[in-house]
Amino acid sequence: MSKKEWPLWEVFIRGQHGLNHRHVGSLHAPDAEMAINHARDVYTRRREGVSIWVVPSKDITASSPSEKGPLFDPAESKTYRHPTFFDIPDEVGKM
């Protein structure tokens, strides 16, 4: 086996009661199938999950921290953008 490092994968797990997959960490694996196996061993030992996604880290496009201001600041102080003024009937369930 060559000394080259295996590529990095980001791991997302949907928990027992969760609705969404959540990012839980990353790991190294040579391909997707082994990344799933590794994720099972590294991140779900305590029955944390019911479903696993793995994504090659290189395929994730991230926003640049230096653009934080222009991207996020305008959203501040506009409370009307938060739907907190509506009464949601119980029957609707999780939003």
């Binding site: 295996w6 790991l27 190294h28 694996a29 196996n37 590794h38 061993d41 590294v42 030992r45």
Partner: peptide, 11 residues
Amino acid sequence: PVLEEDIALAN
């Protein structure tokens, strides 16, 4: 040989 396999073997 790698962290991931180490954990898998321990499991």
